[in-house]
Amino acid sequence: MVAGGNNRGTATRLVVLVLFVGILSALLFFFIGGFVIRGPESLTASPATVAQGNTPAQNAFIHLEVVGSVAAAITFPRPDDPHPTWVSYLPTTILNVPANSTVTLQIDQEDTPSGLRNPFWSQAFGIEGGTFHMTYFDDKGNPQEGDFSSIPDPATAAHTFAIPDLGVFVPLEGLSAAAPAGSMNVITFSFKTGKPGVYHWQCFVPCGSGTIYGNGGPMQTTGYMAGFLVVQ
């Protein structure tokens, strides 16, 4: 009787142990799997166009929006985002573009100025023609437009778009406080892609509100202020 009881006790403990390990393994599997699967979606550049009138031929075109908080998006709302208060590029930061091509990027910049910690980044580098086209609002709220190689005042920058390995660095002018509600600065520029590969890109303005020196949160999370340019 005693020996049979010990056997049953051992079997019970073994079953509990197997169940515990099994459940723990399943949780770990779903946690890791979910982390892998839940990455940001990718955005593929629109196909090439031919020149029409004053519009030059484009090998590829991508349209992005920059917002001070995801919840305030105008062009690319992301209602299910887990961080609606975070600053972000939208709709995503995983960009698929063709290799050995000219990519034109349009960025609707809706965030207010925060300034550049290093004024050097007010200059644009690595873009076609050395200039970007920008429609913006001056400090009186009047719409302005022009081609620029840098923004006039580093203190009025809101963000930057930088692909260090391609040598592309573009400052993004902050939306004037006098601009009409719901308006945006529109910055357009082109750059050349090289050989296929995955190139990291990011914002150089530490704009993670509420984090130490602004370098946490959206600055450290793919899908907000940094991502990948997938050249294929």
């Binding site: 300034g115 910690r117 050097f120 993670g208 509100s209």
Partner: peptide, 17 residues
């Protein structure tokens, strides 16, 4: 607009943080 040469930088202003 290059500022005058300084021997070091501080992480300030704490932009948007």
């Amino acid at each position: 607009p290059v500022p005058s040469y300084a021997p070091y930088y501080f992480p300030s202003p704490r932009v948007k943080g």
